[in-house]
Amino acid sequence: MRRDHFLATSIDTLVEHLVAEYSVTPLTLHEEQRSMDREEAQIDVTGRFDYAQAHSGPTIAKGFRFTFFYPFSGDANLWKLRPNTWSTVLPSAEVDARRSLLIIRIENTSSASPEQLKQTLDSQLSNIRNYIGWQAQMLSAFNEQLPRQIRESVETRRKELEKLDGVSAVFDIPLVKKPGMPDFKPIEMAKKVSRPLPRVPATGVKPEPAINAEAFEEILRIIRHAGASFEGTPQTYAAIGEEGLRDNMLSHINVIFEGKATGETFRKYGKTDIRIEEESRSAFVAECKLWGGQKLLGETLDQLLGYLTWRDCKAALVIFNKSVAGFSGTQEQVRPALTTRPGYLRELSAPSGEWRFVFQSKEDPSREVTVHVFMFNLYVAPDRAGKKR
């Protein structure tokens, strides 16, 4: 793999690509799809006690040959490998890797009973099933530890390359927390084909700064805390529109962090609601929107991705529901609306009631954008609107 791939591609994508490449799919015999062929045959019965041999050379008798075809899935090379657990009786069959078929042939004289033929086939199949099962146990253990081993190797390789080039792929954005500001106490909340790697320029990769994980999580905690306070007094915000909610959220961020957060700033193809930038490039962007259905949510995501120019950038979608009474039903629409968008890569873990996704940059497939999605419920029933708490 090219050195630039390790610098231009996120660790998660590299791990995902390599795990898919090096994991081994165990064999599965699809017995329910079996088929059979039969024909008359000349059977060599030399040495059988039930056939007297009055001459030298082979003894041939009339008989039948049955050919059974069993489709299989998994890595065909596994048929050539013996598991750690094995028996002295080896399975006997022919493997057609091109058609993914296991072919078992059974032949006997015309005097053989149907029960004898079936017993021979059942014995062969039982032996084959045992070997498949023993292999599957070994492969399960191998595939289970593979992601961890690959991640460790990728992280080590990236560190080596960064050290060799004398660069760091991620520089912390200098978000300075104001002296004396308390930490938020986290709310107790309950918390899944090999994808081709993106192309990277032949000229190499220039490392770019990005907001670090700690700063990103701190900003998300502020948004989470502010949104919870909005939900606690929804009547207060009943008359406030999208811009007012954005300004209120922005003030919460600027109370904690000095100076870097600005609102409604022109950037690239449009305006973004909240951004934190360094060296004139947005490292964090948040888009605040009133809920208007799945279509609007998808369009908002496209708008958000259009602002972002950095590799491994962090972003947030903050959705306020003021119009729909069934909030749980509204929440259920978030995941299908976003995971079907072009450029979707994967979903990451997030607290209950929130979502976190990774997308490809719209302008450069080697760049990835992490988008954390919040949805806050500010719906006020008509019979309660305007009433004092």
Results as ranks from 00 to 15, higher is better:
152 E>M: 12
154 V>G: 00
159 K>W: 06
159 K>C: 04
160 E>F: 15
161 L>Q: 01
161 L>M: 04
162 E>R: 02
162 E>L: 02
162 E>G: 04
164 L>G: 08
164 L>A: 09
165 D>I: 00
169 A>T: 11
170 V>P: 00
171 F>C: 06
171 F>T: 07
173 I>K: 08
174 P>I: 09
177 K>R: 15
181 M>P: 00
181 M>I: 05
183 D>T: 13
185 K>P: 07
185 K>Q: 11
188 E>S: 12
190 A>E: 13
191 K>S: 11
192 K>G: 15
193 V>C: 09
200 V>T: 13
201 P>R: 15
203 T>N: 06
203 T>C: 06
204 G>A: 11
205 V>R: 02
206 K>P: 09
206 K>I: 14
211 I>R: 04
212 N>L: 10
215 A>I: 01
215 A>N: 10
216 F>T: 03
219 I>N: 04
219 I>E: 03
220 L>S: 14
221 R>F: 09
223 I>H: 06
225 H>C: 05
225 H>M: 08
227 G>D: 04
228 A>L: 10
233 T>V: 04
235 Q>L: 13
237 Y>R: 02
237 Y>H: 11
238 A>M: 02
239 A>G: 12
242 E>A: 10
243 E>P: 01
246 R>Y: 01
248 N>S: 15
248 N>A: 14
248 N>P: 04
